[in-house]
Design a protein around this nucleic acid. Sequence first.
DNA 1: TCGATTTAAATTGTATACAATCTAATTGTA
DNA 2: TACAATTAGATTGTATACAATTTAAATCGA
Lengths: 143, 143
Amino acid sequence: MNPLALDEQLCFPFYAISREITRRYRPLLEPLGLTYPQYLVMLVVWEEEGQSLKAIGERLHLDSGTLTPLLKKLEAADLLRRVRKPEDERHIQIFLTDAGRALRKQAETVPLDLVRTLDVDEEDLQVVKAALNRLVMKMSDPD
Amino acid sequence: MNPLALDEQLCFPFYAISREITRRYRPLLEPLGLTYPQYLVMLVVWEEEGQSLKAIGERLHLDSGTLTPLLKKLEAADLLRRVRKPEDERHIQIFLTDAGRALRKQAETVPLDLVRTLDVDEEDLQVVKAALNRLVMKMSDPD
DNA sequence: TCGATTTAAATTGTATACAATCTAATTGTA
DNA sequence: TACAATTAGATTGTATACAATTTAAATCGA
């Protein structure tokens, strides 16, 4: 058995599926004017306003090198505002604009639309979902 | 229940885990002078020489826009050679150099080293791998 | 058989990722 | 309380991804 065979690699399916999912989100998000990472940021901001870049980054496992330009793009699109926190000028806080709040309604059908495109075996889905949760728990541990 | 809650998204864990896995490969691949996508390409070329860019792309779900510069980098690193196919000049074929073949030996421990960083049950891994591979197959079907 | 179509790569332009470094603000402490 | 550490973002540089377009080669069809 060849340990370097592509089909033996655990990691490759994660990489391939992740990109395939992003591909399937694209046509659903295009009418909203969002990319997939931008959509993820909006999900986090829709949950709670006033979060810092740092807090959003911890949620999505992204750092300022990725988030700073991405948030600036969303600000340029008038979906949110980046405001320095008065009590601690090192932080920026993210607030929704009216347009950003309005976009949430348009986004509401996206999750179900996406699942419909997946058309996967229910049994596989359960196995994967359970395994993913174990992996996420284990991997977010600082070991 | 909020359908836009990040924790409800099935797709986010794929995105997060995929990037986490890439992060864990980095220190293992750095001594080989490879990035993770470059490593994947080498896996495919180690399996069979003479494959076209197109064939490699189908295996990894990557197009020429990604692969052309990546293969040029691997050629510049003297790991492989890009050769126009004489019978059909539209194709390029990928062949290993001696250095490229030699690197294979160095890479042999990488898969096991990576699994060790995941710290998960080996049996669990086999089950997940099989389910994920079925997902990849299903999702890359043109449905 | 010759122009239209198809095909494989390459190119262009945009948008992530992320390590490494820098800057400015805050905090801890001798 | 100066001032060294720490912290949050921003910046820089490199490496993907991928849509859209271009180029060159091969094939198809009237």
